[in-house]
C-alpha cells in the first residue's frame, strides 16, 4: 500500500501541532495540580478522572465568556495582539525533530514537520516575534498597568534573547550545522550529548528559558502585587486564553529545544538501536522534565526584582555566554575538540 506524500505531511502536521496544543492544555491543568501538591492540597479533581478534562471545561468557558474591549483601546491591535503572541510560538514547533526516522508501512518518515537547513535560525527568528504580541497587547489596552507590563516584558525578552542566541551559537559552532535534525543525530549515544561539552551553555540556556517565557522567578510582565495582571490585564474570554496558550506553547517549544540541543533529542541512553517510538517517548520525557522544572521553580523560588533581573541578564549572563562562545571557538580552532 502506497500512501501519498501530502497525506503523510498532513498527518504529521496534525499530530505534532495537536500534540503541542494538547501539551499546552495539559500544562494549564498541571500548573494547578502541581501547585496544589506542593502546597499539600488536592487541586482540580471534579471534571473527568483526576480532573483530566478540566482544560476542556476551561476552554468551553473561555469561548462563551463575554469579551470586553476597554474604552479608548486601539480595537484592531487589541484584537490582533493575542494571535501575534500565540502564532509564532506554535510555528516554531515545525522545525523541532521529535524523533528519528519512523518506519511505518515500509516507508521511512522523518519525525519533524519541516527539516530545514536553517532550523535554528528559523526558530530564533519566529520566537523573537512573540514579543510583538506582548508589547502591542500592552500598548493597545490603553491602561497604565498593561503598558508597564508590556514594556517590562519586552525589555526582559530582548535582554535575555541575546544570551539565548549566544548559548545556542556555542552548540551550533561545536556541531558545525544549523540543522536541528543533524544536531540531534550527532548526539546518538549518551557520551556525545552536548550537556557534557557545553555544561555552562546548558545552565545558561535553562535559566534563560524562564526569562524568555516570562515565567517565575522572572515573571515581571504579570507581577500581580504591582501590575494587577501585566500586559493582559484588560483581556478577557478567549483572547486571554490565547495569551496563556501562547505562553504554554513557548514553554513547550523551548523545553523541546533544550532537549534537542543538550540532551540528545530522541536518543535513549545505553540503547543505541532503540526503535523509533521509544525515541519519541524518551524525547517527550526529556522535554517533560523541563516543563515540570518550570512548575517546580515557580513554587520554590521567590520573584526577583526588576533591576536584579536586568543586572543578571546584562552583567552576568551575557559576559558568561560570550566567554563560553570564545572558549568554544578557541577549542574548535586549535583542534582540541
Amino acid at each position: 500500500m502506497d500512501v501519498p506524500l501530502p497525506l503523510i505531511w498532513i498527518v504529521k502536521i496534525v499530530v505534532i501541532f495537536g500534540g503541542l496544543v494538547g501539551t499546552a492544555a495539559l500544562m494549564s491543568l498541571a500548573e494547578r495540580k502541581v501547585s496544589a501538591w506542593m502546597q499539600y492540597r488536592i487541586g482540580p479533581n471534579r471534571v473527568g478522572p483526576f480532573g483530566l478534562l478540566q482544560p476542556l471545561a476551561d476552554g468551553i468557558k473561555f469561548i462563551f465568556k463575554e469579551e470586553l474591549i476597554p474604552a479608548g483601546a486601539n480595537k484592531f491591535m487589541f484584537r490582533l495582539a493575542p494571535a501575534l503572541s500565540a502564532a509564532p510560538a506554535m510555528l516554531t514547533m515545525a522545525v523541532i525533530p521529535i524523533g528519528g526516522t519512523a518506519l511505518i508501512a515500509g516507508r521511512e518518515i522523518p519525525l519533524s514537520i519541516a527539516d530545514v537547513d536553517i532550523g535554528v535560525l528559523f526558530l530564533l527568528a519566529f520566537s523573537g516575534l512573540s514579543i510583538y504580541g506582548v508589547i502591542l497587547g500592552g500598548w493597545a489596552s490603553n491602561s497604565k498597568y498593561s503598558l508597564l507590563g508590556g514594556l517590562r516584558a519586552s525589555a526582559q525578552m530582548i535582554s535575555y534573547e541575546l544570551t539565548l542566541i549566544l548559548t545556542i551559537l556555542a552548540v551550533v559552532a561545536l556541531e558545525g550545522t544549523l540543522n536541528l535534525r543533524a544536531i540531534s543525530e550527532n548526539q546518538a549515544s549518551i557520551g556525545q550529548w552536548n550537556i557534557w561539552t557545553q555544561p555552562l551553555a546548558f545552565v545558561l540556556f535553562t535559566i534563560t528559558m524562564f526569562a524568555e517565557t516570562n515565567r517565575h522567578p522572572f515573571d515581571f510582565a504579570e507581577c500581580e502585587p504591582e501590575l494587577v495582571g501585566g500586559f493582559h490585564t484588560e483581556y478577557s474570554a478567549m483572547r486571554f486564553a490565547l495569551y496563556f496558550l501562547g505562553e504554554y506553547c513557548a514553554m513547550t517549544v523551548l523545553s523541546c529545544l533544550n532537549a534537542t540541543l543538550f540532551l540528545g533529542g530522541p536518543s535513549v541512553p545505553f540503547w543505541p538501536e532503540a526503535p523509533w517510538f521509544i525515541g519519541v517517548a524518551a524525547f517527550c520525557l526529556k522535554a517533560g522534565f523541563f516543563l515540570f522544572l518550570f512548575l517546580w521553580v515557580r513554587w520554590s523560588l521567590p520573584r526577583m526584582r526588576f533591576d536584579q533581573l536586568m543586572r543578571l541578564g546584562w552583567k552576568v549572563f551575557l559576559p558568561l555566554a560570550l566567554a563560553n562562545l570564545l572558549v568554544t571557538g578557541a577549542f574548535i580552532s586549535f583542534g582540541a575538540h
Binding site: 523573537g128 516575534l129 514579543i131 510583538y132 508589547i135 519586552s154 530582548i158
Partner: peptide, 10 residues
C-alpha cells in the same frame, strides 16, 4: 522584524 522594529516600537 525581531530586533530593530521592536526597538522602534519601544
Amino acid at each position: 522584524a525581531g530586533a530593530i522594529m521592536v526597538l522602534f516600537l519601544f
